[in-house]
Computed example of a mutant assay.
Amino acid sequence: MFISSTEDLIDNIFTLHNYRDTEYHEFYNGMIKNGVVYIALKHNGEFYFAPSRFAGYKNNNADSHINSYEKDGGETNREISKLMGKERIDQVLEEEYKKYCERNGIVPSNKSRRYWPLIEGPYLREKSMVKDISEIIRNILSFDNGLFSALADVYSRLLYASSTLVVLKYDKDYFFAPSTYVAYMNLDKIDSLWTDTIQHKETDKVISKILEQEFITNHLLDAKYKQYLAVSKLRANNKNLSYCYLDVEEDLGITDITINSVEQTERESKIKARVGQIKYRSALIAMWQKCSVTGFQNVELLRASHIKPWRDCDNVERLDPNNGLLLIPNLDLLFDRGYISFDGDGRILISSLLSIDSRRKMGLHSNMNVILNERQKKYMMYHVEEIFRP
Score class of each variant (00 low, 15 high):
L234Q: 04
S232P: 00
N260W: 01
K378C: 02
S134M: 06
K42I: 15
T294W: 03
N238P: 01
L9A: 03
L353S: 13
S282T: 04
L93S: 12
Y339G: 00
V154F: 02
W116F: 15
Y97S: 10
L331A: 12
G121S: 12
L147E: 05
I80Y: 00
S112K: 14
T195N: 05
T294V: 03
F176K: 03
S269A: 08
E268Y: 10
A40H: 06
N59L: 11
E95K: 14
S282G: 13
R235P: 01
D21V: 04
R53I: 11
L187E: 04
G324Y: 06
D188I: 09
R20T: 08
V248L: 15
L141H: 13
S156Q: 14
S351I: 03
E87M: 03
E317N: 08
T197E: 14
K169V: 07
L326R: 02
F296M: 14
D251C: 07
H306N: 11
L372E: 02
Q199Y: 13
P321F: 07
N110F: 09
S261M: 08
K378N: 14
K308A: 07
I278M: 06
H306S: 04
Q227C: 05
Y38K: 10
K99Y: 08
K201G: 14
N29T: 13
L211D: 02
D188G: 05
L147P: 03
S68V: 10
L241R: 11
L284D: 02
D90T: 02
S109P: 03
V316Y: 14
V316A: 13
E87C: 06
I133Q: 06
L234T: 10
Q199I: 07
G363Q: 07
K201P: 01
S305I: 06
M368I: 10
V37D: 12
F2A: 03
D144Q: 10
L83I: 15
L9T: 01
F2H: 14
E120W: 10
I198W: 00
I10P: 06
S352T: 13
F335R: 06
C313G: 09
L364S: 12
Y243A: 03
G344E: 14
D72I: 05
T258Y: 07
P309Y: 09
K270P: 03
L354Y: 12
S4W: 00
N315R: 12
Y100A: 11
G74I: 05
K58A: 07
R113A: 06
N330C: 10
E96Q: 13
F14E: 05
S128E: 15
G276M: 03
Y243Q: 01
P108L: 10
A223M: 08
N298H: 05
K98C: 06
E7H: 11
G253E: 08
P51T: 11
I356Q: 14
I136K: 02
N139A: 12
C244S: 15
D251G: 03
R389Q: 14
S358E: 15
N298R: 09
K172N: 13
I254P: 01
L93I: 14
E75G: 01
I89C: 05
I136G: 02
I348H: 03
M31C: 15
I340G: 02
S156F: 02
D336R: 11
R53L: 05
P390S: 10
F175Y: 15
K239D: 15
H43S: 15
S134P: 14
G344S: 11
Q199T: 04
K42L: 15
V92K: 12
K42Y: 09
S341E: 09
M84R: 07
